[in-house]
């Protein structure tokens, strides 16, 4: 989703040693400081970006259409103690917390 080129920069900035922060040229030279880490990050990012760009199966749009027809969801909270109850008489489970399953 985000600029792939930004990834190398961020990777070098967050947890790397001073070697890369010193402004050494990237690309092939990246392997000298933490080449393995950079390579892992690059591969991971490539795979992920490939996955993000895959077409969305129709089932998800159909699902949302069905949900749309089936019930009116709770109105999102605009402010604390807002209008969450409006339009959602059938959804008493909404209590302001995330729908987390208890562990």
């Amino acid at each position: 989703m985000r600029d792939p080129k930004g990834f190398a920069g961020r990777g070098a900035g967050d947890a790397r040693g001073p070697e890369q922060a010193a402004g050494k040229p990237r690309g092939l030279d990246v392997r000298f400081a933490s080449g393995a880490d950079a390579a892992v990050s690059r591969r991971l990012k490539e795979m992920y970006d490939g996955l993000v760009s895959e077409p969305v199966p129709d089932r998800f749009l159909e699902l949302l259409n069905q949900l749309d027809k089936a019930e009116t969801p709770a109105v999102p909270t605009s402010a604390p103690g807002g209008t969450a109850a409006a339009g959602s008489p059938g959804n008493p489970a909404v209590d302001g917390s995330l729908p987390v399953e208890k562990s």
């Binding site: 709770a74 995330l98 399953e101």
Partner: peptide
């Protein structure tokens, strides 16, 4: 998506929807 839809009331508009959805997915 189903959980998000039925719990939209617990989402605060203006906050990070993507992070909210990722949280639901990782919990599932």
């Amino acid at each position: 998506l189903v959980k998000a839809w039925t719990n939209l009331g617990s989402f605060t508009v203006g906050t990070n929807l993507k992070a909210w959805l990722f949280t639901i997915l990782r919990n599932v």
